[in-house]
């Protein structure tokens, strides 16, 4: 029993001449919910697929639940993978889908397990409905239940809550925490900040490169950004004005306030005071949030990416 559910080093993946994942190293502890964040097309899905053996990395090594990445058969048995797009069979009934999955993993008491799952989902009465007729939220719950059916030790969830309403999302995350408490490890990719904050650990990936990793606090601290909230009127104009000024890395509107962040706190404060002098605004230094950091990371990597390596 190794300490890590996922422990990979220097994974690389190319599609044609596109370098999709660059030197990815990642460690997920057992029983940990690990959030995987990054903009669209940043390589999250590719990374997840490499970890469950659906894609072979071009280089790099690692293990998943104690099995080498090349031993994808062994990994597949112990991992539950929920695809980004619903990937169960629309023209099978709910029960047939679950039954098929149970048979694929050769579960000893298949019927029992399927019944239990149906009951857990509250779908017993609808078991004979075609899966294609389910709503998005139900499909997502079914997909999670189906990939949990064979009692995996590690869940790989690829944007599981995309397009799901907030209350269903909250239920979903409660379920994830319950599973984690039972010792199941979870790697989950998401675009939602509230979900990121519910993860034990986070990794931020952009343009195939892992930019930050750790707990939410660690990720925030790692970028050592100073952030000021500017409250007042005509914030959009101010935002334009601040753009490109010394010490200002980014401006983001949060509700009624403008968050201005930069790596050099003193310089940022000086600039802010100079520009806003005489204007009817109030300046307050605030704690840098996860979202500030992510937007900062994304902008930084976009700049880096524009320069040919």
């Amino acid at each position: 029993m190794t300490e890590y559910a996922i422990d990979v080093h220097g994974l690389n993946k190319h599609f044609g001449d596109k370098h999709v994942v660059k030197d990815l190293s990642l460690r997920v502890r057992r029983g940990e919910i690990f959030g995987f964040l990054g903009p669209n097309g940043s390589g999250k899905t590719t990374s997840i697929r490499m970890m469950c053996g659906l894609l072979t990395p071009d280089s790099g090594s690692g293990q998943c639940l104690g099995h080498d990445l090349s031993d994808s058969d062994a990994i597949k048995r112990k991992v539950g993978y929920m695809t980004q797009k619903f990937s169960y069979w629309d023209d099978l009934t709910i029960r047939e889908n679950l039954d098929f999955v149970a048979r694929m993993y050769q579960m000893p008491r298949r019927r029992e397990a399927v019944d239990r799952t149906l009951e857990g989902l509250g779908l017993t009465s609808r078991a004979k409905q075609l899966t294609g007729a389910l709503s998005g939220g139900w499909k997502q719950r079914l997909a999670l239940a189906a990939c949990m059916l064979h009692e995996p030790q590690l869940l790989l969830l690829d944007e599981p809550t995309a397009g799901v309403d907030p209350s269903a999302r909250r239920d979903f995350w409660e379920e994830l925490h319950r599973l984690a408490a039972q010792g199941i490890s979870v790697l989950v990719s998401t675009h939602y900040m509230d979900e990121a904050e519910r993860c034990h650990k986070l990794a931020y990936i952009a343009y195939g490169r892992l930019l930050a990793q750790g707990t939410a606090d660690e990720v925030i601290a790692s970028q050592s950004l100073a952030t000021w909230a500017v409250a007042g009127t005509r914030l959009a104009e101010l935002s334009q004005l601040l753009h490109g000024q010394p010490g200002v890395a980014q401006t983001v509107v949060f509700g009624g306030a403008l968050h201005v962040s930069g790596p050099d706190g003193a310089l940022l404060e000086a600039t802010l005071r100079r520009i806003t002098a005489g204007q009817p605004v109030t300046l307050t230094q605030v704690a840098t949030g996860l979202e500030d950091v992510f937007i900062y990371l994304m902008n930084q990597s976009a700049d880096n990416y524009a320069v040919p390596a």
Partner: peptide, 13 residues
Amino acid sequence: ERGTMENLLATPV
């Protein structure tokens, strides 16, 4: 085409 192949490949089949 329907994306179910990914699911199939993720099982031990």
